[in-house]
Amino acid sequence: MLIPVGFEYLKPKNLAELDEAVRDGAFLISGGTVGVRLLKERIVRPKLVVDISEVEEAQGAKQGEGIVDLGAALKIYQLQRLSVNGPVSDMIRFVSSGIADPAIRTMGSLGGNIALADPSNELPVPLMLADASLLIYGQHRFHEEKIRGFIHGPHRTGLKPGEVIVRVRYKELDGYRWSYKKHFIRNLDHYVGISGAMAKVDSGKIIDLRLVVAGEAIMGFKYLAPERAIGARPSEAIIKEVAEEAVSGISPKSDRQGPSEYKVAVLKKLVELSVKEALGA
């Protein structure tokens, strides 16, 4: 039986209540799909658990003047049904539909998916492509941070103790095409590799190309904007060059998911497929 150590539980309804609830050593959960497991396995042993799932400032989704503004408490299944338009939002809907299983999508939240920074968490990928901003609250004040700088490495972010992601904002990338590819060995395992690409091509030339790779092969998230592709015509040569750049310098560890070289080869292939699709090549 996996039973957490005893703790006090608080569920603030808004940020003012959150200020009163959070104190040193508090462990924050939103959906709890990871947090409750950490509690049960006694990897964390907090005296206080603060459930931020109903904080009112972190609810809902809206779109205006080209900006999409999502509450961090939105559940993943709600993201599947986002009623906002544009390529980034389309990609978020698609990515959300493939996260874990229907039960986990009922429980897991947007904010949790970002804050945990697990290399197999998927929502950071479209959000990094869109250069999304995170509205963070803690210590009685708000500040905004770009998601690209927020994720420092596997399970490491810029979030300080007691801080929470309240909202996620991004500008729609009109005229962009996107593609998202991932590979796993078994259902619900960590992904060997993830590759998301967004591109704008006009008059047969690449105007912009953005790429995010993630998963076990890279043990983190890596954003690339291959400058050499800009102005070029989409071609196999460009695609292969981008794929080479994406996997350069990575040396994943060999484990039960496969040897290091296999993981690199998988990621490279995913990049090729996603870039090709995003370029419409």
Partner: peptide
């Protein structure tokens, strides 16, 4: 341990009763 909460599936081993 799957059950429905407000009509949607959840895994009740990963949810606290207080939630």
């Amino acid at each position: 341990c799957s059950v429905l909460i407000d009509g949607r599936p959840v895994k009740s081993c990963l949810m606290l009763a207080v939630q």
